[in-house]
Simulated assay, not measured.
Amino acid sequence: MAEFEKLELEISVALKEFADSTKKSSKVAADISPVLDVTSELPLANLEYWERFIRDQYDNALASGYSHRWKFWQSNTPRISLLDLCSWDGYRREKALKTINTKVPNKLFLAFVLRRLNDWVPQVRLAAQDVLDKVLVNTEPSYVADVICFTLSHWSSWQRIDEPNRKALLDTLANKDIAKHVKLKLINSAAGPLASILSEVGRTDALDDSLEEIAASAIQPSLRAKAYRSLLEGKVSWFEGREWEWTDRRYNEGRMKPIVAERALSTKIPLLPTMLLASNDRSSLVRRVAAEILIKELDNLGSASSVLASKYAADRAAAVAERGKFALKKLAGDTLF
């Protein structure tokens, strides 16, 4: 049996056991811990699939357990639990959020809570907003870091979340433990939209002091490139949205133009040493960024400009070499380029 199918089976069995324990006739106290155990390591990358799967399997288990309609004196309505964060019923999603006291037991269910900030029912969004601060403060920092990174990589497509809730999520990074886990996740992850996540985190100054470490140590080249660009430009930028731009009003033609916002870094770094580090990076993505910055900073680097330009001109990557040759021509005063 494939590992994925085995995991689905384990979750189905745990959901069935929990549904059975919630019956009025059950002699066993309702215990959700088996469900929490089997879902604790589920990858957030498949969050939408697992939400649908848990909802469908739990609904099926409940349907088989609450079918005694002739016993009119017994309630056929199952008790509210964390699993109702995935329910089709907005009333149950809202009540599930209101039952959360202090923390969420694993990162999967924390991700479900945060997804309710973009829920299609306004009352559910309000309930998620009310519970947001306490669950983020009281839940395990590593869980919060994982879920925040996942959320930041997706929330540009969330149309219902409001700015106060976005700000509340970002303000969580003021917690040093959470910020540390976010930094380590960025550095040690090899795949995913890490550069985009760093851009979104850049709305705050939580990782400004860690950018040099990220640039030097991150596994993913595009993340190192993003970190070096932010350091060398002294600012961090992120995608803010899109707005309509007319290209020809006579013919009613236009396009959606991306809006890029930026913020100056709260820390300053020495330009030349950082340029030298970037020029020796093993990835051409990083060296290309450094070559682009060199062209902008030719007049501020003194004699080092020609040394770096010559180095880039001889680079084995064509995109880097092209920029190095451009810089050499500019230093030579050649305007025919």
Rank of each mutant, 00 (worst) to 15 (best):
I259Q: 05
L184R: 08
A309E: 02
L36S: 08
W88Y: 11
Y91D: 12
Q220K: 12
E262S: 14
F239K: 01
V38Y: 12
E212D: 12
L44E: 00
D31P: 00
K183C: 14
A225L: 00
A30D: 00
W155S: 08
A14F: 02
Q57K: 13
G302H: 13
D146T: 02
E322M: 09
K185M: 02
A225E: 07
L173F: 00
A264V: 08
L298H: 02
N138T: 14
L62Q: 02
F72W: 04
K16Y: 05
D205H: 03
D171K: 13
S217G: 06
P43K: 03
L328E: 06
S156P: 07
A290N: 03
R116N: 09
T204V: 08
L42W: 09
A216I: 14
I100L: 12
A309M: 06
I148F: 06
S310N: 15
A291C: 05
I197S: 01
R323F: 13
P141G: 02
I100M: 10
N76S: 10
A179D: 02
E212W: 03
S81R: 07
S230G: 11
Y228P: 06
R55T: 05
E163N: 11
E262I: 06
D209F: 10
L170A: 10
A45F: 06
S303G: 09
N60D: 15
H68F: 05
D208P: 09
Y91V: 13
A304L: 00
K103R: 14
S196R: 07
M256P: 00
M1T: 05
P193E: 05
L298K: 03
